[in-house]
Design a protein around this nucleic acid. Sequence first.
DNA 1: TGATTTTATGTCAAATCTGATATGTATTTG
DNA 2: CAAATACATATCAGATTTGACATAAAATCA
Lengths: 103, 103
Amino acid sequence: MDKLKKERLQKKGWKVGDVDEFLGLSPAEMAIVEMKVALAKALVAKRKALGETQVSAAIIAKTSQSRYAKVEHADSSVSLELMIKMFFALGATKKELLKTLSA
Amino acid sequence: MDKLKKERLQKKGWKVGDVDEFLGLSPAEMAIVEMKVALAKALVAKRKALGETQVSAAIIAKTSQSRYAKVEHADSSVSLELMIKMFFALGATKKELLKTLSA
DNA sequence: TGATTTTATGTCAAATCTGATATGTATTTG
DNA sequence: CAAATACATATCAGATTTGACATAAAATCA
C-alpha cells in the first residue's frame, strides 16, 4: 500500500495494513467492519428513497449534518450503535436492519 | 412501578417510566433494547456451552471479569458494539449473531 | 459563470464507554 | 460450617464517541 495513503488513513483512526495485516484481521473485526459498511450504504439509499438531504435527515435523526455525514461514511468516529439508531430514525425496521447486516 | 425500584434503576442509568412512558419508547429504542437483551442471553448460553466461567471468558475476550459480567447483563454501561465483539470473541459467527438479533 | 445548495472534513467540549480494581454476595465443595 | 469458587456491583481514570460549530469542497442550477 502507498505509504502516504496509509499514513493518511491511520491519522483518521483506522488500523491500516498490507495484505497480510488485512488478512490478519480477526473474523470478528471483519464482520463488524462489513456490517458498518453495509449500514452506511443502506443509510444513503434509505435517505435518498425518502428524498431527504443530509441536513433534513440530520434533523429527523436529531443530530447535526456533520455527524450525520460521518455516519453515512462509517467514519471511524462513529459507533455501530449510532449507525443503527440513525437507520431506525429514518424509518427502517428491524427486519430491514437484519437484511442489511447480513449483506 | 414501585417508586424505590424506579429510583434504583434510574440511578443505574436507565430511563424508567410507568406503562405509558414504556409504551412511549420509540420502536427504535425498543428494537435496540431487544437486541441487547437477546445478545446477553445468547452470550450466557454460548459461554456455558463452552464450559467457561466469567473469568475464563473474560480472558478469552481480553477484558475483566467485571466488565464481562456487565455485558452478560446488558448493563447500561455496555454498548451494543461491545456485546457483539464479546459474542464473536466467544466464537460466535455472523450467522449466529443475526439469528440472535432477530429473536 | 456565479450563486445556491448539498455534502465533506477538522476540531473540541461534554457525554458516554471501557477496563480495571476492589469488594460484596451467592454458590459450591470439602 | 468454612474455604473456595463463581458471579455481581460500585467506582473511577483513561479512552472513545457524540453533537455541534466552522469551514471547505463539490454538485446543482438559474
